[in-house]
Simulated assay, not measured.
Amino acid sequence: MGRLRERIDDRLGDPIWWNDVLHLAKTVLAAVTAWVIAASVLDLPQPFLAPWAALLVVHATVYRTFSKGFQQVAATVVAVLLATAVGETLGLSTAAVALLLVLALLVGAVPWLGAEATTIATTGLVVLTTGFESDVLLISRLLDTAIGVAVGLLVNVVVWPPLGRRTAAEAMDRIDDEIGELLVDIAGGLGDGCQEEDVTGWIDRTRDLDGDLEHAWALVRQAQESARMNPRRPAREMKNPEQWHELLRRMEQAVAETRSLARTLGGQQAHRETWGEAFADPWISMLGDAGRAAGGADPAALTEVRHRLEAFTEELRATERSAEWPIYGALIINLRNIVDAMGKVAEAHPIRGNRLPLQVPQIRGDAPAG
């Protein structure tokens, strides 16, 4: 139960999850409201296009709601007109369905419609198969579409317009935590005597981090887009998020340096025995400390590791004459670059998204395990 409570608390405090929940709730609200207006208030005969159009225009950002939404609305209107024309010419038949699909896919290829061929085809099929006999029905369907569009736009603009700042910040926060965890694991593996499969696992984890970085870039771009046409005051900061871009580039560098470090380690079959304790112990210690500082967003600790690394390098330069100097140099440079990159990320700690203060209520008598 304690583990389940912890997982639920983590989910409740996760702004990325709440962003998805909010978008889902707004989409449902827009569709249901459009249905109620079309079916109950205006009593239109076939009001299904109202919630359909509302679903199409509620996007993750206000800007996309207007830009992409209008393309989808235009596609819906084209589909209604196209299905009506085909139905009145050929009736409801196999030939009519085939002709409608061909025309819909051809019209959907027009660049201005933003590749909405599927929307045109599916909407056209629904309209064709549910009736097309009267002009009144055609007007009703166009009115349904207009209601859905208006409701969708209004809901997305008025009801807490989405701003992806917190979501992007949380994604970036997770990445520097994962980088720090990987560095600590590498240091621990070297201390215990790593095997080839350990090195392969570390390299694979850097590839996973590359995927996380791509996702974070997408979230930052979405956050920047969410600031356009957004009336909320915090949106100003995200209109030109150069600081965020710089942090992502530095995390990319840290991941690349970590992969290079792991590949260097993979070429060494007996690390401690080959390097000697004079190099192995201090360097592994600094690698672990750098990982803990990066994961904890502690710029002072990273600076302290940087100073230790500089002093260690000078000491080696003055005393060491090992044949392993090329390996020493490669590992020292990798660690120095990681520390420098993550130091800037740690200094930007205020940019991070704070976890939401939401938890499962503590039940009386449910004492935490101790």
Rank of each mutant, 00 (worst) to 15 (best):
L105K: 09
Q362N: 11
Q268H: 02
L182D: 07
R306H: 13
C194L: 12
E214I: 06
L138V: 14
Q243H: 13
L82P: 01
Y63F: 15
P299F: 04
E273D: 13
L143Q: 07
G164Q: 06
V41T: 11
W217Y: 14
Q224S: 12
I37W: 07
L106M: 09
P282G: 13
D366E: 14
D212V: 01
A115D: 13
G365Y: 15
L138Y: 07
P361Q: 13
G114C: 11
T129A: 12
L213C: 03
L248H: 01
A171K: 05
L287E: 08
I338G: 03
P161L: 03
L24A: 07
R272C: 04
R64C: 03
V80G: 05
E252V: 02
I284V: 14
R259T: 09
G152A: 02
E315W: 04
I8L: 15
D14I: 02
G188C: 07
P299G: 05
A301D: 03
G131C: 09
A79F: 09
E214Y: 01
G188R: 10
L101R: 03
E197N: 00
C194G: 02
H245R: 14
E242G: 05
M251F: 03
E246S: 11
R336M: 10
E214T: 10
L142C: 04
G69Y: 04
T274S: 08
D176F: 00
R352L: 13
G164K: 03
P361Y: 13
T118G: 08
R236I: 10
E324M: 10
L44M: 09
F70R: 04
E237L: 15
A311K: 08
E252F: 01
R174C: 02
E116L: 04
W35S: 02
A227G: 15
A50K: 10
G370H: 15
T313Q: 13
D14W: 00
D281I: 14
D43P: 00
V305C: 12
A223P: 08
A96Q: 03
V159L: 15
T206L: 07
Y328T: 03
P299D: 06
Q253K: 09
E178T: 06
V305L: 05
D176T: 04
V199Q: 07
L190S: 03
T129M: 10
L302C: 05
G365A: 14
I332F: 01
R221H: 14
L90H: 00
L287W: 08
V149I: 07
G291K: 05
